[in-house]
Amino acid sequence: MSRLIGPAARLSALALLLALVLRPDWFEPILKPFTENNAPAIYTQSSLLSLTLAHLGLVAVASVIGTALALVMGVFVTRPMGAEFLPLSRSLVNIGQTFPPVAVLALAVPVVGFGLKPTLIALVLYGLLPIFENTITGLKEVPENVVEAARGMGLSPQQQLFRVELPLALPVILAGIRLSVVINMGTATIGSTVAAKGLGEVIIAGLLTSNTAFILQGGIIVALLAVLLYDALSILENRIAKRTGRLAEVAG
């Protein structure tokens, strides 16, 4: 699944997204029919731009933290030192992924209160699972003879890891990151139900006031953002995979 969408579709989607976020008033005539009782058609509580940036910021921070944690843990359990944790890690990842994101979010609230914090915790915890899983898979899939050759040429364990194993595992790890970012986009949207700033706010506002125009507006922006982000990461992943000479088989 190298590219989700063709270049033309990609550009129009991007243009539509930018217009929706930067010039929402353009869409008033289209959205107006979806409102009732003269309700506003365009969400003005906060600027859509600031909500989009907050949303993306939240996902970015969570993804960076999640990736860092997942990489360290993934490397640890595939070293001889951490081998005892490997079967457990696999089981925990499996069990963890059966937890619905919204449950993780809701359970974080009583511990840390409302707002950004529970959302960030849920995003990091839930988002690190696919990266952790793919890091383990990627490192375990590096052909034994390649590692053996590296060892035979006198590379230290660190050098083996950074020059041979991680670069070869990179496409699979990146597939995990892509999956994680997509999941985080969704969970961040739900984060608005616990008062985290983000695009979910627009949809929630629409649901609470039965304003279909808000729902459409928020829904389309979030959907476009997620699809474009996923697409961009796929392209990046493919470039890198081509350089490493193999394609990530573990797709999202």
């Binding site: 969408i5 969704g186 997620a226």
Partner: peptide, 22 residues
Amino acid sequence: TLPVLNIIQTVPSMAMYGLMIV
């Protein structure tokens, strides 16, 4: 088929539920 289904899968759930309403 597969790319279209992939795009659908990428849309966050809350947005999807919202968009179904219309």
